[in-house]
Computed example of a mutant assay.
Amino acid sequence: MGSLSPVHWAIVIVVLLLLFGSRKLPDMARGLGQSMRILKAEGRALQDDDRRDGPAPTAGTDTAERANPAAHPATGADGPATAQRDAS
């Protein structure tokens, strides 16, 4: 009961032919195929961009600040809040 038998597929095809006509169905299938190719290409491009960019940096600090916080006096020992109080 879960899968469609060949008879069910034949009925679906006949109904589609009656609804859309034999001229529009190949055009619709061609358009669907082009859309799927574009979607796949864009998905690959996004994955390639993510691979090229590398891992995302953590919020607010870079690796040099985490390694040696004293080398960056603008952030201070306690972080940006200390630097803002000292500057005022």
Rank of each mutant, 00 (worst) to 15 (best):
M1G: 11
G2F: 09
S3I: 08
S5I: 02
P6A: 11
P6E: 10
P6Y: 05
V7D: 12
H8E: 15
H8D: 15
A10W: 01
A10H: 03
A10G: 07
V12M: 11
V12F: 06
I13A: 15
V14G: 05
V14I: 06
L16G: 04
L16S: 08
L16D: 05
L16P: 01
L16H: 04
L17S: 05
L17F: 03
L18V: 08
L18M: 06
L19Y: 04
L19K: 05
L19S: 09
L19A: 14
F20P: 01
G21S: 11
G21N: 05
G21F: 00
S22L: 09
R23H: 05
R23Y: 05
L25E: 02
L25F: 01
P26K: 08
P26T: 05
D27K: 05
D27N: 06
M28V: 02
R30H: 02
G31P: 00
G33N: 12
G33P: 01
Q34M: 10
Q34T: 04
Q34E: 14
S35Q: 05
M36C: 13
M36D: 08
R37Q: 15
R37V: 14
L39C: 10
L39G: 12
K40E: 12
E42I: 12
A45P: 02
L46E: 15
L46Y: 12
R51M: 07
R51V: 08
R52V: 09
D53L: 13
D53T: 08
D53V: 02
D53N: 13
G54W: 00
G54A: 07
G54E: 00
P57W: 00
P57G: 07
P57N: 06
P57F: 00
P57M: 03
P57A: 07
T58M: 09
A59C: 01
A59S: 04
G60E: 04
G60L: 08
T61N: 06
T63G: 03
R66E: 03
N68Q: 08
P69K: 01
A70Y: 03
A71Q: 13
A71F: 10
H72K: 10
H72I: 12
P73N: 13
P73R: 07
A74Q: 15
T75R: 15
G76V: 07
G76A: 09
A77G: 04
A77K: 14
D78P: 00
G79Q: 08
G79T: 09
A81Y: 02
A83P: 01
R85M: 10
A87H: 06
A87Y: 05
A87L: 14
A87M: 10
A87C: 08
